[in-house]
Design a protein around this nucleic acid. Structure first.
Lengths: 212, 212
DNA sequence: CAGTCCGCTGTACGTTCGTATAGGAGGGCG
DNA sequence: CGCCCTCCTATACGAACGTACAGCGGACTG
């Protein structure tokens, strides 16, 4: 289980980090100002600088915190079954919503946290493929990378997905609905053997000479 | 085919828009300044304001341009086969790379262009499902939305995907490799009928009473 | 030829941001 | 008691940004 909050984490330093995490997630790294973060945390402007030195260092602290948390959540999410477990609901872990928003932002800002999370996702997918679906793919690395990116996609676009779905993806209801959609997607056979082999042959030919 | 550039588009106004598109994509909406854009376009600061009025209006113009172009590309990409066509290579359309970068940025900035592109993707996926895989899903809307998000994922994370792959996703080589990975992913049967039904039943139960 | 609109430049203004610094309240220690 | 260290506030400074405005040259019109 994810520990909701450490005891010593109620210090002003932690409050600043939490406020930064929230505002960075909402408005982006440039959009959130130190003044806003200080106000959100209920402290003065100078204290932020006193504890973190600079805005860049504050961002790095948020990154480190988000990295550790996301790693914890990611490993837990892939533990019990191939799909995420039913007990793994947004209600049970309110921090998930904040974390997803922060990491979605970090993804386009190119921070280390996003990069680390993605690499973790790829590594987990690779292990999972090697364990449960070994020797099935010509390019297992590419399959793992693409699948990782495909599974992060809905999380990064959770606002657009929620709007299109009419249900907040990061709610219990949305989680159940999306997971059931995943089940339908992965249960369906999208390609016939013929069409798959034909397409594969076409791309193999394309790969040889650039002019088919 | 995608027209590479309209004739009248060589005006200073178009140069400014192109420069804005490029810098917005690279540095984000806040990171790119009007001064940088003016310098990139080789014009003065005042001319940008003369043509577009404000930075927000310039962003809107970029959005409109990107929307039209992405719609054009999206419909073309899904035209010939279920997967994207071999002729649809980054080499053939250098604008794609810029467009993907811009829209990836827009996705986290929440602009109208990103929203429109996503909705287009969902609509196309819905049509495709209804045409080629009708009456196969309990919740076709959710399937379409999730699949659209899954397919945009690698594009939004193209830099991370490229790093993990060791190949630039937005190059001809990366395009071929990722498409072949897609083929492998959609050809494979990830779930046995038993495990799929068991998971489905578990989530159905979860949906009824919140306490299984 | 005079008038006028359009594309374009250069400079200046007010705001906001990150950063820096001086200083105060409170507790532990010699 | 005196000192200092930690946590914290308040104020100030320089830079960068979006915006605004005055003006200049060329082309087109009458």
């Amino acid at each position: 289980m994810v520990e909701e909050r450490a005891v010593e984490d109620l210090t002003a330093r932690a409050r600043i980090r939490d406020a930064a995490l929230r505002l960075f997630a909402e408005r982006g790294m440039d959009g959130a100002t130190i003044r806003d973060i200080a106000a959100e945390a209920g402290v003065s402007l100078g204290l932020v600088r006193h504890h973190f030195g600079s805005k860049e260092a504050l961002r790095a602290a948020c990154d480190e915190y988000a990295s550790a948390l996301s790693r914890q959540l990611l490993f837990e999410a892939t533990k019990p079954t191939a799909m995420s477990s039913p007990s793994f609901l947004p209600e049970a872990h309110p921090t998930i919503v904040l974390l997803v928003r922060y990491l979605a932002r970090s993804m386009s800002d190119g921070t280390a946290a996003a990069s680390a999370m993605f690499d973790d996702g790829v590594a987990l997918t690779e292990q999972w493929i090697e364990r449960d679906h070994p020797n099935q793919f010509e390019d297992p690395k590419a399959v793992a990378v693409m699948m990782a990116a495909m599974h992060f996609g809905p999380l990064l676009m959770h606002n657009l997905v929620s709007a299109a779905l009419g249900t907040d993806l990061l709610s219990t209801e949305g989680h159940i609905r999306s997971t059931k959609a995943y089940l339908e997607i992965y249960r369906h056979s999208w390609l016939t053997k013929d069409s798959a082999e034909a397409a594969k042959a076409a791309y193999d030919r394309l790969e040889e000479g650039e002019t088919p």
